[in-house]
Design a protein around this nucleic acid. Structure first.
Lengths: 105, 105
DNA sequence: TCGATGATTAGCTAAATATCGACATCATGA
DNA sequence: TCATGATGTCGATATTTAGCTAATCATCGA
């Protein structure tokens, strides 16, 4: 979970995830959205991969990145759960939290 | 929102927020939970204050910190909303997300 | 007013991070 | 085979961050 929050600390990386929400994109396509160099983007991708937030698929010489929504979800939910107050009697172990219909585990 | 995610990137700071979920605590009480020096903790508090995640109240010589749950919630929800997929027809503008009963705006 | 207590500020170091240009890799098509 | 296009890796540099000790500030009680 720490790796996920570390990854989310950077605006560029959050934006990458946001772009990948719509559809998988190649490294080049993603890089085109930002004013930084390719190596810099590559480093950001590495951080996101390390956090297991994205998945890389290599086809020929092209690498396509795909969002792993469930991992993002688990981290966010795992953290949010720590703040969902549980009163003595009224205590559902897990509060109602969903990022996306059907995506919650 | 960036400040919030920056603040959440550190495990110590996340733990501080978690401790404050239960009840307000003084700087000293909080510091007692961690193996780092007081000044270091003070720096963490400053980051959390900067992100508006906690509120400081000075009583005499003691400073009590309190969690601003709504700010944390807004940031998490604001981000999560970006990933709540909206299909063409089945499109609720905002998905059902709550951290805590009655706390959602 | 003094001294003790709780907390922050100042000044510093070490480590981590972001960023770049240059180079390496690897698959593809001429 | 060779050039090319798409990426990643390397090495260097600058910035940021976490952490420490020592000093300072503010408040309270004797």
């Amino acid at each position: 979970m720490n790796a996920v929050f570390k990854a989310l600390a950077d605006p560029t990386r959050r934006k990458v995830l946001e772009l990948l929400r719509e559809q998988p994109l190649t490294a080049g396509e993603l890089a085109a959205h930002f004013p930084v160099s390719r190596p810099t983007m590559s480093a950001h991708f590495a951080v996101l991969r390390e956090a297991d937030l994205i998945e890389a698929t290599k086809i020929g010489t092209t690498i396509t990145y795909q969002l792993k929504l469930s991992v993002l979800e688990d981290a966010l939910l795992g953290f949010a759960r720590l703040f969902a107050t549980r009163t003595a009697d009224n205590a559902p172990a897990a509060p109602a939290i969903t990022l996306k219909d059907g995506a919650a585990k």
